[in-house]
Simulated scan of single mutants.
Amino acid sequence: MTPPAASPGRWSDLDRPPLNASALRRALLRPGGLWTSLDIVESTGSTNSDLSAKAPGLPEGAVLVAEEQTAGRGRLDRDWSAPARSGLFLSVLLKPDVPVQRWGWLPLLTGVAAATGLARAAGTDFSLKWPNDLLVKVGGEERKAGGILAERVGDDGVVIGIGINVTLREDELPVPGAGSLALADAISTDRDPLLRALLRSLEDWYGTWRAANGDPHASRLQEMYAAGCSTLGLKVRAELPGDRTLIGEAVAVDGDGRLVVTTPDGKDHPIGAGDIIHLRPGG
Results as ranks from 00 to 15, higher is better:
204 D>Y: 14
139 G>Y: 10
56 P>G: 07
236 V>L: 06
258 R>K: 10
25 R>L: 11
44 T>K: 10
211 A>G: 03
36 T>L: 10
240 L>Q: 09
159 V>Q: 06
48 N>Y: 11
195 L>D: 01
139 G>E: 12
81 S>V: 14
249 E>M: 01
5 A>P: 10
107 P>V: 06
125 D>H: 14
262 T>Q: 10
197 A>C: 06
197 A>L: 04
132 N>A: 06
183 L>A: 01
100 V>Y: 13
99 P>L: 06
206 Y>A: 03
2 T>M: 13
152 R>Q: 15
80 W>T: 05
85 R>I: 05
36 T>Y: 00
108 L>V: 04
161 G>K: 00
238 A>S: 02
228 G>W: 03
97 D>C: 13
205 W>G: 04
88 L>I: 12
35 W>P: 09
112 V>G: 00
123 G>E: 10
34 L>S: 06
222 Q>N: 12
131 P>M: 08
77 D>K: 05
57 G>D: 11
13 D>N: 15
180 S>C: 04
99 P>V: 00
93 L>R: 01
19 L>E: 13
91 S>T: 00
27 A>T: 14
60 E>S: 11
32 G>A: 09
129 K>S: 09
194 L>Y: 04
199 L>G: 13
261 V>T: 02
79 D>A: 15
239 E>P: 02
122 A>K: 07
140 G>H: 13
39 D>T: 14
194 L>N: 02
25 R>K: 14
277 I>V: 15
204 D>M: 09
83 P>F: 05
103 W>M: 01
49 S>G: 00
94 L>W: 02
203 E>V: 02
184 A>M: 07
218 A>S: 14
106 L>G: 04
178 A>V: 08
44 T>P: 00
2 T>F: 13
74 G>P: 07
140 G>V: 09
57 G>M: 08
145 A>D: 00
18 P>R: 11
92 V>D: 05
149 L>N: 04
1 M>L: 13
150 A>I: 06
17 P>C: 14
71 A>C: 10
4 P>N: 13
240 L>H: 07
85 R>C: 02
136 V>W: 04
150 A>D: 06
10 R>N: 11
129 K>L: 08
268 D>L: 08
31 P>V: 14
108 L>E: 03
166 V>I: 08
280 R>P: 11
253 V>P: 05
25 R>Y: 10
268 D>N: 12
19 L>I: 14
126 F>S: 01
83 P>T: 00
224 M>I: 00
228 G>E: 05
45 G>D: 12
189 T>A: 12
124 T>D: 04
55 A>T: 00
148 I>N: 05
283 G>K: 09
94 L>H: 01
268 D>S: 10
82 A>M: 09
69 Q>M: 03
118 L>A: 06
168 L>P: 01
72 G>C: 06
245 T>A: 14
80 W>G: 03
208 T>F: 00
250 A>S: 02
99 P>I: 01
134 L>I: 06
253 V>N: 03
97 D>G: 12
160 I>L: 09
201 S>T: 11
280 R>E: 14
28 L>G: 12
69 Q>N: 05
198 L>C: 04
18 P>K: 11
246 L>Y: 03
271 I>K: 05
